[in-house]
Amino acid sequence: MSDKTGFLAPSTYSRLLPHAVLMTGALFMLLPFYWMLLTSIRAPAEIFNVSLWPIPQSFHALENYAAATQTVPLFRFMLNGVIVCLGILVVQLLVAIPAAYALAKLPFPGAKLFFSLVIGALCVPMQVLALPLFIGLAWADLLNTYFALMAPFLLSVFAIFLFRQTFKSYPDEIIQAARLDGMSEMAICWRLVVPSALPAIAAFAVFSIVAHWNDLYWPMIVISDMRLAPPPLGMLFFADAESGTNYGALMAGAAVLTSPLVICFLLARRQFIEGITMTGVK
């Protein structure tokens, strides 16, 4: 890296510069999280202290986290998040994978029309559908249920589109060999094509879970019962319950509710990044 005179070679500078820029950006992005953690261990008197020093004058973590977990059912919110995210993801995959396989590999009348419908559906924002969906669910007496939380997201046109593009590149000859060997189209789809598309499926799973774990808009519309609230809505209930005064406990709750995704990301960092760069290429 550095030569004997102590000067860095020009190429080293050009490599360090992007890192320096990125690190500055990362600092700004991590600052709110750091502030959240810091506030969650400070005493109420210290909350508005601008110091970034990590050790508070009086260590108040236990009280804050206890307050957070006792005032509202934090773990219930997390369980709701898990149920909703997994429920959505499983149904999305069960529906989107066969649909994408049919669009990618099976010639059938109307295939082009269906694919244009998929693309068209990508252009419709969630907010447009919110009111009719709400009225429909209310009419069916399904408000305040897990089903209401999941229903609008069970069919993901984005998943169909993404998987169709991935499956398209699967070699036709292997599919034909499988047909000659006697595999059904479903077996070809699930046992041959899906294993080869795992990176794309993982990438989609990441997007789906993150989006629905963090979703506040739709739960606010269909859920008024605190016991069914997913994490962001739970935070909102907590803020209301505390009238927004006990910031230490509020931040403790936020830290608890953010942690599952952060832990997941740290555990599966490599797959996460691979998946996202892959969808970038596609």
Binding site: E173, I174, Q176, A178, L180, L192
Partner: peptide, 14 residues
């Protein structure tokens, strides 16, 4: 009841 050998061999990769 026919078997086929393909140019790309078409083996199941996984």
């Amino acid at each position: 009841d026919v078997a086929m050998v393909f140019q790309s061999y078409a083996l199941y990769p996984h």
